[in-house]
Design a protein around this nucleic acid. Structure first.
Lengths: 126, 126
DNA sequence: TAACTGTACTAATTATGTTAATACAGTTAA
DNA sequence: TTAACTGTATTAACATAATTAGTACAGTTA
């Protein structure tokens, strides 16, 4: 289900958050779909359950999943959660990256094309 | 000159790299302008000179500055350096962020506007 | 020469990530 | 009810990375 780089300087739980976000954003994991339990996923990835839990806790804080004691963790319906804070974060980060890209010589046309490419590849979500 | 968050989970040297990049990109620091010496900046920020040096080393590796022993560290002319690797990194990161923004409900029109805003605010560079 | 510059190195300390073991509470199905 | 699953919490030990501290060397400049 996942590919982790245990040698990376990026913490495992951050890799997990990023990877799971992508799966949710790309609709590989659908709304209300049950995620693997912390113990199951930890076993599959040969890492500690605490590390999985840390990732799940972060994803829940960001509104991507919700957890129910005794039942499991599930993909959120993003429309149910308040995304304002996350949107603000992403926009601020995007501004920095766009400024950097422009500085490095990437044209605004290329960047607009990049947006449209991403948009096309994620049709049919929701 | 800088605002650092010593309590942040983000390492000081990474904050320094990010902040100096912004100053260079926004032309606050001009080409060939001399940066504060590692000892001076360390003293101003009340942190260790080694931490400054680590940030400068990273900025030099990314092509944003160049250092001359005995003279100092200076802002690069970005056109002099090979940005291919950096451009690839930034584009990949941008794709992820754009996908996340779209997922959170930001429209592609908003994103295009964001690009144009950043572009306008950085006129007169180079 | 004196005072500045970048750079390098080692050691100690601190912070963070990760593992390990254990425990508790809620859910589900036999 | 029992057994096996779920999330969650806590504490300790360990590994790694970040940071500090101290020192040293080499090049530059006035």
């Amino acid at each position: 289900m996942f590919e982790l780089d245990l040698r990376s300087r990026k913490p495992i739980y951050e890799q997990l958050v990023e990877r799971l976000k992508q799966l949710i954003i790309n609709n590989v994991l659908e709304k209300d779909e049950k995620l693997p339990s912390v113990r199951t996923l930890a076993s599959q990835l040969s890492i500690n359950p605490n590390t999985i839990q840390k990732a799940y806790r972060e994803l829940e804080a960001q509104g991507y999943i919700y957890s129910v004691k005794g039942k499991g963790s599930f993909v959120s319906n993003s429309l149910m959660t308040d995304n304002a804070a996350e949107i603000k974060k992403v926009k601020e980060q995007l501004k920095k990256q766009v400024a950097e890209a422009l500085f490095l010589g990437v044209t605004s046309e290329e960047l607009i094309q990049l947006i449209q490419d991403v948009e096309k590849s994620s049709v049919g979500e929701g």
